[in-house]
Structure formats: structure tokens, C-alpha cells
Amino acid sequence: MILRRFLFDRITETWMVTALVTILLLPLIIGIALYLKALPLFEIQNLPHLIGSSEWLPTDGKFGFWPFINSSMYVTVLSFIFAAPVCLLAGIYLTQFASKNLVRIMQPVMDILAGLPSVIYGMWGILIIVPFVGNVLAPFLNINSSGYTMLAGGIVLAVMCIPYMLNMLIEIFNTVPIGLKEASLSMGATFWQAVKHVVIRKSYPGIISAYGLGLAKAFGETLAVMMVVGNRVQITHNPFKAGYPLPALIANNYGEMLSIPMYDSALMFAALLLLVIILIINLVFRYFIYKTKTR
């Protein structure tokens, strides 16, 4: 009886350890697999040239990723400009001013916003945002635009990132000791002054981290952006023109990637690039968050 229990214990423990180790090694395995696939590409072009060049002619074997990286960053920054102030203000309101009832209503709202699949956001973007940008905003500014633009991508992306950033901001604001705020209130500060000088200052590293993680999420988002951004290879700084972000490149071309030589390597390199960038951003900012939480 004791032996059986002991044996059972051993076996289950092995199972548990294997599971845990597998999960923890996953990013490494993904990275290695993608790197091995991308290796042929490194043999014909060096890394700085791959990233810096803007020549994209897969049939001639010319792979320059700069237009895609550029579009990705542009859309990400655009979405950040829309989402960041909204998140900060809503986070402050929900942790400092709001009634218990409103907080109770907001929790499922954020859950659902965070849980809606990106395709749904994409469809909403096509139905609402694209016509809005193309038929209302562009004519208003005297610009000719189809609506499938980086601006539309930025707006849809902003809506998708808001619940993600807001959740983290609320957690961070809640770690600010209430005594600190009370001290400033008792000195005659208004609520807003207490927020501005105590809450925000105290959670400064946390806010930066939440923003950083939001940027990383926006950078890797695929389908919603791809549906509204237009997908044209070009370098532009005009929000009313189409872009072609890195994830969209991978998702759009998987069909023909085995028919053109080196194309699959190039796409796997794009995936590797995404993985490395996002993993680094995540590791750095998560570290900051842990520091603020444990302090």
C-alpha cells in the first residue's frame, strides 16, 4: 500500500516536472526551430542588410524587411497615441474616483473586450472604421483615400490594446499604499492633486511597463490589423496610405511560400524577428513590474 502510494507519487511528480519544463523551454524551442528555418536566408544576406534594405522582390531573391518593420512600428505607435491617454485616465478613474457599482460593471466589460477575437475587431474595423476614414475623415481633410489605411489599423489596434493595458494599470495603481494618498489629502490637496503628485509618481515605472507591454502586444497583432491596413509594400509616413505590417506579411503569404525559393526562409525569419523583439520587450518590462510589485 505504502509502496503503491510512493510509486504513484514518483510517477505523477515526473509528469508534473516534464510538463513544467516543456512549457518553460517552449520559447527556446520555437526560437531554435524558426532560426533553423531562416538559416538559408542568412547565407545569402547578412542581418543588417535584411533589416535595413527596402528592396522586396522575392522572385529575384531580394528580401528587404524595412518596409514591413516600418509599417509595423508606424501602426503600433499610432495605436499607442490613441490608447495611452484613454487607458491612463480610465485607470485613474476606476481606481480613485469610481463608485463600487461602476467598477463592478467595468470588470465584465473589460473581460469581454479582452476576450473578443481579433477577427471580430477586424470585421468591426471593415464595417465601421474603414468607411469612416475613407468617406468622412479623408474628404474632410481633402485627402484621397480608400479607407484601408494605417490610420484605420491604428484605431482598431488601439481598441484592442486598451483592455490589456488598462488591466495592468489598474493592478499597478492598486499597489500604491493608501496611506500615502491620505497623507497628501490631509495636507489639503484635492483628489486630482493627490493622484497627480502621489499615485502617478509612485507608479511611474509600472505605467511605463504597462505601456511597453501594450506596445509589444500591438506589434504582434495580426488579423485585425491585416484586415484594415491595406497591405501594400511601401515606405510612407502618411497615415492615410496603406501599410504592410510584419505579421500581415507572414499571414498573407503562407500559401505561396513553398513555391518561390527562399520565400519560406524569409517568412520564418519575419516570425523569428517578431518573436525576438516581443520577447525582449516582455522580459524587460515584466521585470520592472515585478520590481514595483514587490517593493
Partner: peptide, 8 residues
């Protein structure tokens, strides 16, 4: 790990 995008 949670942050890795699904396309990857």
C-alpha cells in the same frame, strides 16, 4: 510567454 503573438 503569454505575450508571444499567435502568428509566431
Amino acid at each position: 510567454l503569454w505575450g508571444i503573438p499567435s502568428i509566431v
